[in-house]
Write a protein that binds this DNA or RNA. Structure first.
Lengths: 336, 336
DNA sequence: GATCGACTCTAGAACGTTCTAGTTGCGTCG
DNA sequence: CGACGCAACTAGAACGTTCTAGAGTCGATC
């Protein structure tokens, strides 16, 4: 194989089939304006010459690019699942996806600017961390849909989970099992930590358990959960609702090492339904986000904006659901 | 914001700055042929008009597309880490990456054909599953680098881990700890399962332990490991080298539930150094692939091919390394 | 004082498509 | 038999770049 040889173009196919370039274009796009006979002949030639349309030239000419840029993070739990859903949704309505990853050494700004140069029609950002002001500036240029976080700026569309509700579900579940002394280990300064914390507080109040409400400083990682667990050991509650699954596993580990039985002595609820939370020996009760729905809505919203529709609801909030597994059980009988 | 308004182009910048389009192009590309004064003025205007180059037009014109297509799987353990490494490597040599994901409902063929339409200069495939014949056909059209699998066809470049060596490491480690009765739970029909199985057999023979060599049918997932564990319970060895971390966690769970102490009664080694294997309460001894090196070499190889270099070694095999954690320990004193 | 070379800049043709505005050929209708 | 409509097709101009070839300008050299 010689690398230098050009790929076959419309012109090649046209010459070979003895028709004009425009006609080949018509056939390739399945547009009206060609007889069945020619259509077939052209397709046959195209197949024989192994013709592949050049999307760059195509998009360059046709202006609007049926192309959605997606920024995702390589380290994040369910971004992969979200990507799956986004591909499904995009394909259903005939859009292409182009991905740009955020890695430990490639920041969000870089990822976004790459997509801008690809001239996508809109951007879908998974859990964007950049300042809202920047998001807003971006949204002045092209439609931007932020997922899994709130954005006050009204140029930016938002599709997110009702995180407050997620903690309602967790607390309700624990209360139903008889728990009263329920602690929340929060996400610290992490995205949507505030919403979840507030959701926890609301739920406790609603159950008349303000007196028990207690928030322990946590974070995103396993160590954060472990640290919170050590803090809890002095005066252990009967149940803990944790910011996310990763932190919950760290917490579980420390608790168990100190001889506490889960769920015998203490119940734990995570958040995210991460793939590892399903592992048999973790088997974590957790709050799952409705990823397919979120993906579908994000794509739909982006496309509406591209088509210039005036969209009524800027923010779409999806209810999560509780996945009950093995780390929650009835509250232990009160001691003393 | 009106979606319809065109983005600013070179022509806009040129008009505003009172120079020709070509000159603006020169300035934007940082090419020689413009005075420092104009350069600065043009850059200022470009910044003010918020000019973003159109990579489609750019690549269309300039023919060769410093663009590498990467196909990765959303479900796979270390594909994320590999992506990180690929971005690093590509950036170092001034190449762009364009990603295409394989999802449960988007197969490899689709992912690849998307990249072909984007006219990438070469393809990097992470653990491709398509038939080698197809890979070869693809490689006749543009440089193809397959990672983490062997491909006999000589048009296709390969960068992979020395999987046989990985199992040598695992077995050597266990033997050093005094184990003799070491079982291998394999990956079934999975990619590179054969290499690892062979590596296990070789290592056992080298240690004069042919008599103990025993391969149990496993697979990729947690359930496969769990199933293998139940099979082992009748006649448990003192150590198990498992095909991958996921399977190993399934195996660990079943063993522990049946009262076996790890590593007291039985040691376990995984493969992949998956993120969850580092979790404190899994703490799995495992074989890690040298991901940064593999990524760097894959990109380097792709670029060599693009530049038309005659590359001597079609296949690059990287040695793995053992990460010792908490699931391996000294062999228990022989019973009876 | 003409010629040269260097530097800075510009005009215009690519690249591979799509799209607009035709031009054919041909059957049908008044 | 001329006008019309329609289907099938084509020529050529876009799209936003890069690239080639060349045009000015200016100081230095012969």
């Amino acid at each position: 194989m010689t690398v230098g040889d050009r790929r076959t173009t419309l012109a090649d196919v046209a010459a070979e089939a003895g028709v004009s370039v425009a006609l080949v274009s018509i056939v390739m796009r399945d547009a009206p304006g060609a007889s069945a006979a020619t259509r077939e002949r052209v397709l046959e030639v195209a197949r024989r010459l192994d013709y592949q349309p050049d999307s760059r030239a195509r998009l360059l000419r046709s202006g609007q690019s049926r192309l959605l840029g997606v920024v995702f993070g390589v380290q994040h739990p369910f971004h992969d699942d979200l990507l799956t859903g986004l591909y499904d949704a995009a394909e259903r309505i005939g859009y292409e996806l182009t991905l740009s990853a955020v890695t430990p050494r490639r920041d969000e700004r870089t990822a976004i600017s790459g997509l801008l140069q690809d001239r996508c029609a809109a951007l879908v950002l998974l859990g964007p961390q950049i300042p809202t002001a920047e998001l807003a500036a971006l949204a002045d240029r092209l439609p931007v849909v932020a997922m899994m976080r709130t954005v006050r700026q009204r140029q930016v569309d938002v599709v997110r989970t009702d995180d407050a509700r997620g903690l309602h579900l967790a607390v309700d579940h624990l209360v139903e099992l008889g728990h009263r002394n329920i602690v929340h280990v929060d996400g610290g300064r992490w995205l949507s930590s505030a919403e979840r914390r507030q959701g926890y507080r609301d739920a406790m109040r609603r159950h008349g358990l303000e007196a028990y409400a207690r928030v322990v400083n946590g974070g995103f990682g396993e160590e954060d959960g472990a640290r919170a667990a050590r803090e809890l050991l002095d005066d252990p509650p009967t149940a803990v609702a944790v910011f996310n699954d990763l932190s919950a596993t760290g917490l579980l580990d420390v608790l168990r090492r100190h001889g506490l039985e889960v769920p015998g002595d203490l119940s734990v609820v995570g958040y995210d339904d991460s793939s590892f939370s399903r592992l048999a020996h973790i088997d974590l009760t957790t709050v799952a986000q409705d990823i397919p729905t979120m993906a579908t809505l994000a794509v739909a919203r982006a496309v509406e904006r591209i088509d210039g529709a005036q969209v009524a609801h800027r923010e779409v909030v999806i209810p999560p659901r509780l996945v009950v597994r093995g780390t929650t059980g009835p509250a232990p009988a009160p001691a003393t």
